[in-house]
């Protein structure tokens, strides 16, 4: 539901990261965790909408989806989860730490020289 404001934040950070105004933005790479509550299709749609008719028009938003990963304190195993049920699939322990899945980060941008 808040993908539009997330897209706006991404664009703000990108604007401040382009070295020279004359360089055209080609793509923005972001990492989105499966537990971040972001709908990727909706985010892409919003990003496209806000760059339309601006100097960034045509730039792509490349999303790397990060799976949920937990570490079990009992059997010391790291596992990727398909569903966000925080129980170690190996030993059924609840004593697990979330290693990945909450990401919402910009990793890099690509600009024309």
């Amino acid at each position: 539901m808040h993908e539009l404001s997330i897209a706006q934040e991404i664009l703000n950070i990108v604007k401040n990261s382009i070295p020279s105004e004359t360089q055209k933005l080609k793509s923005v790479k972001i990492r989105v965790g499966k537990l971040s509550g972001i709908l990727i299709d909706s985010l892409k749609f919003c990003f496209e909408a806000i760059i339309n008719d601006t100097e960034f028009s045509g730039a792509s938003l490349d999303v790397i989806e990060i799976p949920i990963k937990i570490s079990c304190a009992e059997c010391k195993t790291d596992t990727e989860l398909n569903e966000p049920i925080f129980i170690c699939p190996r030993c059924n322990s609840f004593n697990v730490q979330l290693l990945a899945g909450r990401e919402l980060e910009i990793t890099e941008i690509e600009v024309e020289d």
């Binding site: 934040e9 950070i13 990261s17 972001i30 919402l104 910009i106 990793t107 890099e108 941008i109 600009v111």
Partner: peptide, 14 residues
């Protein structure tokens, strides 16, 4: 074409 590494949280301002 050049790639610029950013590594920033989208909601860092918040």
């Amino acid at each position: 074409m050049s790639v610029i590494t950013i590594e920033r949280k989208v909601l860092e301002k918040n």
